[in-house]
Nucleic acid binder design. Structure first.
Lengths: 253, 253
DNA sequence: TGTATAGTATCTTATAGAAGAGTTGGCGGC
DNA sequence: GCCGCCAACTCTTCTATAAGATACTATACA
């Protein structure tokens, strides 16, 4: 049996299809696509399991299995007796999930942006096209800012965004503290995963000046690509961090 | 209804118990405990879902739900038509899971140990007791070794293990490449998670000599605590890595 | 030596009832 | 009439079970 909303599969018996996927997987794919398309806004409730089951022509338990998967992937949240909600990036949450820098004592750090933030639009260069998976000729927005902890500079950030996804973001300065919430709320770009690459480096003259440290201070250099629901590469962020002030802490499992 | 193998719960109706846990959760706990106790060796097959269900007096679906959870936590592996197996740390796997250093082009790095590895036993110091959650007076084994990529040194490693958990590990030199597989196979210590803290640092004289780099070279300093199935802190590992040769790459989700 | 076939394992789907959370309406007191 | 309390109802997700489908292995057989 195939989903009523997937007519291309409904026409042939699933057993004969080379792209066979279990029913609950089809439901999962369908829901992911709809969430990606913004059928429900973040924070909004999805139809109930029964309603979804009826609409898709499967049983409630099958819908439930798909929703379970979405829940562990943090795309949705469920509350017994209330409903199922599309996850939203609150300021708190997105920091907890993707911001791995903590204070040396292990407590959460909440950085703020210094004066002098710059936003400009320009053509993307070759490595940027590659990292963001863009077609040649695409434009990007480049944001540069200094992030502070307890009032003194600790991180240099450079953020690259495809203009195609964020058409007017250069008119939104000063940018809010929780960028991912902005991406989600204003541009429908929901970042669900991130690939990070870390190097050790030392502060050069320009770094030293902006961070208020001496040349040669060790810096943690972080390259991050933010991934959207459908695998789109949404953001490329480069951070250079003074790790005497902040520690990169991550739990592998 | 409570598990037949959990008599403390079976005596009172679950509804009245303040420690109420769903059946499938009780099954899960029971299985985790048994795996931790080594009821089945790593790589060995568990009884079938039906057999477990019969033994525990629940339905196959309930056992399955518990096994599903164990599977996402990577404590077990399942193969349709074959059976369910206790996960084992093969050399390949443990590297993929907890070794986040890759070559600059993104391919997997397989380090080897240089000559000159040292293993010694001594009393644990205060910070070590704290990190490993040991009682005062406990002893540790300290391992120091240089790890190489393509034949040239890239990582300095210092490993601390509680002697209580690894009684005779100092007699096993040279240690194998895949330490976590050794922990699991010979000492029943199955590492399922790890907490890592990363700093940027520069090479001091001793580092420079052992790694063959100049003093002042940026180094990535990694502190890792390995966590066992029941939350025990099994290993404290400190790595100092030349990130011109290796990159720390991690995917957050 | 290759091919059915039986048996046993996990995987998929469906259904029924329990438990949580809010809403509504009745009822008594003021 | 108006307010407050509480039980009943209805909606939700959660739990537990059962039955059939699918996958793999080994054995019997031509």
């Amino acid at each position: 049996m195939a989903l009523a909303t997937v007519p291309t599969m409904a026409s042939t018996p699933v057993e004969e299809s080379p792209h066979y996927r279990p029913l609950y997987r089809q439901v999962y794919d369908s829901l992911v696509r709809q969430i990606a398309e913004g059928a429900w806004r973040p924070g909004e409730a999805l139809p109930s399991e029964q309603a979804l089951a009826a609409r898709l022509g499967v049983s409630q338990g099958t819908v439930r299995k798909a929703l379970d998967t979405l829940a562990v992937e943090k795309l949705i949240e469920r509350r017994q007796g209330k409903g199922t909600y599309v996850a939203e990036h609150t300021a708190e949450r997105s920091l907890f999930r993707f911001f791995k820098l903590t204070l040396p004592d292990g407590t959460r750090a909440t950085p703020t942006t210094e004066e002098g933030e710059t936003v400009r639009r320009r053509a993307a260069r070759a490595p940027e096209l590659k990292r963001l998976g863009l077609a040649p000729g695409a434009s990007v927005v480049e944001i540069n800012r200094v992030r502070s902890i307890d009032g003194s500079p600790a991180i240099l950030e450079r953020i690259l965004l495809p203009v195609a996804l964020f058409p007017d973001i250069d008119k939104r300065i000063p940018l809010p503290n929780a960028l991912y919430a902005l991406y989600q709320r204003e541009y429908g770009q929901n970042i669900v995963a991130a690939e990070e690459e870390l190097h050790a480096d030392v502060a050069r003259r320009e770094d030293a000046k902006r961070l208020g440290v001496v040349v040669g201070t060790p810096l943690l250099h972080i390259e991050r690509v933010g991934i959207g629901v459908d695998g789109t590469r949404v953001e490329w962020r480069t951070s250079r961090c003074d790790t005497r002030r902040l520690v990169y802490a991550v739990t592998l499992s």
